[in-house]
Amino acid sequence: MKYISKLFLMLIVIVSVSSCQDDDAEFGAVIAPSNLTLTASIQGQSAAEPNGDGTGIVIFNAASDNALNYTYDFGDGRQGSTFDGEIEHRFVELGTNTYSVTVTATGTGGAATTQTILIDVLSTFDDSEAKDFLTGGSSKTWYWSVAENAHWGVGPTNLIGGQSPEAYYTPAFFGVSPFGRYCVDLTECFYEDEMIFTKTGNDVTFELKNFGSTYFHNTYLSQFGGPSANNPNNSDECLPFTAPAPGLVTFTPTLDTDVPETESRKTSIILGNDNFLSWYVGSSEYEILEITANRVVFRTVQANDPALAWYHVLTTEVPVNPNPNCI
């Protein structure tokens, strides 16, 4: 009997080991990428301008054996990732600065290999006035300009159906009426948001305070746990959401836009850490159309539908609900 018991235990051990080996076989070998190389091409680089033409744009190319993806740390507080190893980045610190750029190539099982290079890049673009308007020189909080007509709305990025040229830079499709997102169950979080720009030295950071929920375009609801049970029509709605951590703001010249120069400042901002200005349409880049010390108009293109441009009119005045009893 003891012999049979021992034989039974041995069989269990053999089956267990065999099972683990099968699992390992299914997972595959853990292989770290090898022969990793990293090169950089600075826009406008020449013998006369060895650090570039001042745009600060650099195209990086990484290559290796057995890599599944590449993650970049650009040495300026910003990161990026790509599957094929090529990525474009704009350095924005004024003057010629040295950056330590590291790429991490990741293989199967998370095995990783890194490579670092030093690069000197010239950046001459700055919009100090816009920075001061947004931050007041230190820190400033912005809100939806709820009393204005079309303080939030959408228009085309292509002129279709015989629309006037103004459709490029106005919410020609739809503009919400004054206080138009108050007293609506699915949108009750919208006007609570605080958008804070803070300046330290010449750097600006952005923080979104959404108090636990964000208003999402309906095409993004499924990515963030929606639609909710009280939204059978899959309309835009507020969903529980933890706002991204504060991130650096990149100020860039606006290049890829159909908005005429007379209707735009031709400065855009890119919010770090995948931040966004309250309304979620998958974008972190915003063109500044108008800006003063207490009012700003932004335009952003919807990430999953580049035919749509969204408009945000913000103010430094705290929103006041004209009918507080309705919520």
Score class of each variant (00 low, 15 high):
residue 92 V to N: 15
residue 15 V to R: 11
residue 45 Q to L: 01
residue 176 V to R: 07
residue 55 T to I: 08
residue 310 W to T: 11
residue 42 I to F: 04
residue 173 F to D: 14
residue 180 G to C: 11
residue 14 I to V: 12
residue 286 Y to W: 03
residue 164 S to G: 14
residue 310 W to G: 08
residue 67 A to Y: 10
residue 187 T to K: 10
residue 38 L to C: 01
residue 48 A to T: 13
residue 219 T to W: 04
residue 100 S to C: 03
residue 223 Q to D: 15
residue 239 L to H: 06
residue 75 G to D: 02
residue 116 T to G: 03
residue 311 Y to D: 02
residue 18 S to F: 12
residue 216 F to T: 06
residue 157 T to F: 00
residue 230 N to R: 13
residue 209 K to L: 05
residue 45 Q to K: 15
residue 171 P to Q: 08
residue 222 S to W: 11
residue 128 S to V: 13
residue 264 S to N: 01
residue 78 R to M: 10
residue 234 N to E: 13
residue 127 D to I: 03
residue 293 A to E: 15
residue 189 C to N: 05
residue 223 Q to R: 12
residue 210 N to F: 05
residue 252 T to W: 05
residue 50 P to A: 07
residue 315 T to G: 03
residue 102 T to I: 07
residue 71 T to V: 14
residue 33 P to H: 04
residue 100 S to W: 09
residue 40 A to F: 01
residue 182 Y to D: 09
residue 95 G to M: 10
residue 206 F to C: 05
residue 101 V to K: 05
residue 248 L to W: 10
residue 246 P to H: 01
residue 170 T to N: 07
residue 135 T to D: 04
residue 275 N to E: 07
residue 204 V to Q: 11
residue 102 T to F: 05
residue 291 I to F: 09
residue 246 P to K: 06
residue 304 N to L: 12
residue 269 I to G: 09
residue 72 Y to I: 06
residue 107 G to D: 08
residue 277 L to S: 04
residue 34 S to T: 07
residue 108 T to P: 02
residue 87 I to K: 00
residue 105 A to V: 05
residue 192 E to Q: 15
residue 116 T to E: 06
residue 109 G to Q: 05
residue 304 N to H: 00
residue 35 N to A: 12
residue 95 G to N: 00
residue 180 G to F: 03
residue 259 V to W: 04
residue 234 N to P: 08
residue 252 T to S: 15
residue 265 R to L: 12
residue 272 G to H: 06
residue 290 E to L: 08
residue 265 R to P: 00
residue 162 G to Y: 08
residue 223 Q to K: 12
residue 20 C to R: 14
residue 183 C to Y: 00
residue 74 F to L: 11
residue 4 I to E: 07
residue 278 S to V: 12
residue 228 S to Y: 07
residue 317 E to F: 06
residue 306 P to C: 02
residue 191 Y to P: 00
residue 287 E to Y: 09
residue 256 D to F: 08
residue 121 V to Q: 13
residue 211 F to G: 05
residue 60 F to S: 04
residue 254 T to A: 15
residue 29 A to T: 11
residue 109 G to H: 01
residue 267 T to E: 01
residue 148 E to R: 13
residue 110 G to V: 10
residue 295 R to T: 14
residue 187 T to A: 14
residue 38 L to T: 08
residue 153 G to L: 06
residue 69 N to I: 11
residue 313 V to D: 04
residue 97 N to H: 11
residue 24 D to K: 13
residue 104 T to Y: 01
residue 306 P to L: 11
residue 53 D to M: 04
residue 34 S to I: 00
residue 170 T to I: 04
residue 54 G to N: 03
residue 95 G to L: 12
residue 184 V to K: 15
residue 315 T to E: 08
residue 219 T to G: 12
residue 195 M to V: 05
residue 161 G to D: 01
residue 201 G to K: 03
residue 290 E to M: 06
residue 308 L to S: 11
residue 263 E to D: 15
residue 312 H to P: 05
residue 75 G to Y: 04
residue 112 A to D: 03
residue 23 D to S: 13
